[in-house]
Simulated assay, not measured.
Amino acid sequence: MPQTVQGVISRAKDAPVELTTIVVPDPGPGEAVVQIQACGVCHTDLHYKTGGIGDDYPYLLGHEAAGVVESVGDGVTEVQPGDYVILNWRAVCGECRACRRGRPWYCFNTHNARQKMTLEDGTELSPALGIGAFVEKTLVAAGQCTKVDSAAPATVAGLLGCGVMAGIGAAINTGAVTRNDSVAVIGCGGVGDAAIAGARLVGAHTVIAIDTDQRKLDWAREFGATHTVLASDGDVVEQVQALTGGFGVDVAIDAVGLPQTWKQAFYLRDLAGTVVLVGVPNPAAQLEIPLIDVFGRGGSLKSSWYGDCLPTRDFPVLIDLYLQGRLPLDRFVTEQIGLTDIEAAFEKMHHGDVLRSVVVL
């Protein structure tokens, strides 16, 4: 039978979020119901609330989550009841042209649960990133569940479901940072700091954190930044070149997504260096750059989709590294809150006061 649980929705653009009753159907074929233990408050959730992603209201917010599988539908083999899982928003299909070419991290046909969760009056909800996890229990496609070691607390494990994975993957998967590389990361929020942690994890010898906020630069050092650049102190490109013998870095990661920060990343890299865009741009943003500069500097210009991750490959490995003390996921958690505190968490996020608020259920 369908269950009724408590969850947080955004009913209309810019309206305060609401804690209300959600109806969760029994899982159908290929689906699973997951009891949520913790869920991070991600900037993407704020974008849903403010209309920055779409207008398919009401939205069931939350997506950066970990919990326990409660039940599964017919044909599910990936997980079973009792499994401890991290939720992901790119369940690969296994059949599209990317999957068939052995590149499932680029899957062009990722999928979600077919059934809809609803309000008590039958109004269908749009789950954030196909998950909807500011709720006691949620319905997802079974492929959105990745089993990991239950020794990792849900407050940190769930962060791999979005922002932290995006940043780590931008460095390791997309940017292919390796031992003895030099790296610059523009924007030291959760995604940027995760990129810094990822770069240090694989042995980058120089990791330069760049931001306009000195507090965030101080946080970046905790994740492994070897140098910091306060953007207001002068030309960012010149400051980075001064730290790299006048050459620039091997890999430049833009975790902001503005035309000006992308240009900084482009010009502060060394010849034949790599630019990685992981910050999500405004759809109206336009970029102008001399084409001869693109040709003359060589290298690679890349966009990072969810850190180009494959959850079944990457989540268990990163959790193991955390448990070994080699990946400081705990440092991302600024505060633990309840479902009634999410509106206040959005305000703190807006002012840059937190890396991650994490809802504990």
Rank of each mutant, 00 (worst) to 15 (best):
residue 276 V to A: 03
residue 155 T to I: 13
residue 289 I to H: 01
residue 174 T to E: 02
residue 265 A to G: 14
residue 329 L to N: 12
residue 201 L to G: 03
residue 75 G to N: 03
residue 303 S to K: 07
residue 288 E to W: 01
residue 15 A to W: 01
residue 119 L to P: 08
residue 211 D to A: 09
residue 238 E to D: 14
residue 11 R to M: 10
residue 1 M to F: 09
residue 64 E to R: 11
residue 188 C to S: 09
residue 306 Y to D: 04
residue 99 C to F: 14
residue 26 D to C: 09
residue 33 V to D: 03
residue 241 Q to S: 11
residue 299 G to L: 04
residue 131 I to V: 15
residue 93 C to I: 14
residue 150 S to F: 05
residue 58 P to C: 10
residue 273 G to R: 12
residue 115 Q to Y: 00
residue 66 A to T: 14
residue 195 A to W: 01
residue 177 V to D: 05
residue 253 I to T: 11
residue 345 A to W: 01
residue 359 V to P: 02
residue 147 K to A: 10
residue 351 H to M: 00
residue 144 Q to M: 07
residue 285 A to I: 07
residue 239 Q to D: 04
residue 226 T to V: 10
residue 41 V to S: 01
residue 204 A to W: 08
residue 103 R to P: 00
residue 314 D to C: 09
residue 193 D to E: 14
residue 247 F to Q: 14
residue 171 A to F: 13
residue 177 V to G: 11
residue 1 M to S: 15
residue 85 V to M: 02
residue 280 V to K: 00
residue 213 D to E: 04
residue 115 Q to E: 08
residue 159 L to C: 12
residue 65 A to L: 04
residue 121 D to H: 07
residue 269 R to F: 13
residue 280 V to S: 02
residue 122 G to N: 09
residue 185 V to G: 05
residue 231 A to L: 05
residue 79 V to Q: 00
residue 354 V to E: 00
residue 64 E to C: 08
residue 336 Q to F: 03
residue 149 D to G: 11
residue 270 D to C: 10
residue 265 A to V: 12
residue 248 G to L: 13
residue 255 A to R: 05
residue 269 R to H: 10
residue 26 D to R: 09
residue 189 G to T: 11
residue 24 V to Q: 02
residue 129 L to K: 12
residue 321 L to S: 11
residue 121 D to S: 12
residue 256 V to T: 10
residue 132 G to M: 06
residue 274 T to C: 02
residue 327 L to C: 14
residue 222 E to Y: 09
residue 57 Y to H: 05
residue 3 Q to W: 01
residue 219 W to F: 07
residue 1 M to L: 11
residue 216 K to C: 08
residue 361 L to G: 07
residue 129 L to F: 06
residue 191 V to Q: 04
residue 332 F to R: 13
residue 15 A to E: 15
residue 133 A to T: 13
residue 55 D to C: 02
residue 57 Y to Q: 03
residue 71 S to F: 06
residue 206 T to F: 03
residue 145 C to Y: 08
residue 318 L to I: 12
residue 240 V to I: 13
residue 149 D to K: 08
residue 18 E to R: 13
residue 3 Q to D: 08
residue 164 V to E: 03
residue 309 C to R: 08
residue 159 L to W: 06
residue 100 R to D: 02
residue 123 T to K: 09
residue 62 G to F: 02
residue 64 E to T: 14
residue 201 L to A: 09
residue 109 N to A: 14
residue 128 A to D: 05
residue 46 L to T: 13
residue 178 T to G: 14
residue 204 A to I: 10
residue 45 D to P: 11
residue 179 R to I: 15
residue 237 V to N: 06
residue 55 D to R: 09
residue 139 L to G: 10
residue 192 G to Y: 12
residue 134 F to N: 09
residue 59 Y to P: 07
residue 54 G to Y: 00
residue 182 S to Q: 08
residue 130 G to N: 03
residue 225 A to D: 04
residue 360 V to R: 10
residue 110 T to I: 08
residue 178 T to E: 06
residue 53 I to G: 00
residue 73 G to I: 10
residue 303 S to P: 01
residue 128 A to K: 02
residue 271 L to S: 13
